[in-house]
Simulated assay, not measured.
Amino acid sequence: MRLASEHRGLIAKQRHFYLATVTPSGWPYLQHRGGPRGFVHVLDDHTLAFADFDGNEQFVSTGNIDAGGRVAMFFVDYPTRTRLKVFGTARVIAAEEDPDLHERLLDVPGGRIKSPSRRSIVVDVEAFDMNCRKYIVPRFEREAVDRMIAPYRDDLIAANARIKELEARVAELERGA
């Protein structure tokens, strides 16, 4: 299966996703992964990758990947109520094993990621699914809300200024009457 442009676009704008791995004993393990917009890179139609940021030093996900590699990635775009599940086989690559890849993954549309990272995770996509959006509650980031309400805020500021101007004019007319 090939990731289409709609899948690539949804992934590229995300600031987080949920990563599911499988423990050596067969149990699922789920972890939230976050970073700046675009931290998950679509390398091609079949491959995703991201820099693995230093965290709590437990290495559960990376250990599970080393043990078997099966992963699921769950992306949710709340404003459009869209979700994408990606299933694949992952591998952990130390930064020194492929420094060019690691450096590439630290570059995002907003600049360079400053969070410490010593490894990359590369996922060979085997399947994906976009399905029901019925119960996804829309959620918007502050910057998006600010953009949406800016025209109304500007109108309100202008209206309040005009009201003060008219009140001053009325007061002036009342003093003259």
Rank of each mutant, 00 (worst) to 15 (best):
I11N: 12
H16A: 06
Y18T: 11
A20E: 03
V22L: 09
W27M: 06
Y29E: 13
Y29M: 07
L30A: 11
Q31D: 05
Q31G: 04
Q31S: 13
G34Y: 05
G35P: 09
G35F: 07
R37M: 12
R37Q: 14
F39I: 08
V40L: 07
V42E: 01
L43F: 12
D45Y: 06
H46A: 10
D52C: 12
D52T: 08
G55F: 08
N56Y: 14
N56F: 12
E57A: 15
E57P: 00
F59R: 14
F59Y: 15
F59S: 01
V60D: 01
T62Y: 08
T62I: 01
N64C: 06
D66M: 15
D66Q: 11
D66K: 15
G68C: 04
R70I: 04
F75G: 03
V76E: 00
Y78T: 02
R83C: 01
K85C: 00
T89K: 14
A90F: 09
R91D: 05
A94S: 04
A95K: 14
A95L: 02
D98G: 01
P99I: 02
L101A: 10
E103N: 11
R104N: 09
L105I: 09
D107R: 15
R112T: 11
R112K: 12
K114S: 12
S115F: 13
P116N: 13
S117M: 05
R118F: 13
R118I: 00
R119D: 01
R119Y: 03
S120G: 02
S120F: 10
S120E: 01
V122C: 00
V122H: 00
V123S: 04
D124R: 15
V125W: 10
A127Q: 13
F128G: 05
D129C: 01
M130W: 11
C132S: 11
R133L: 02
K134Y: 08
Y135Q: 02
I136A: 06
P138Q: 00
P138Y: 08
E141Q: 06
E141M: 12
R142T: 15
E143Q: 10
V145H: 04
M148R: 15
P151A: 03
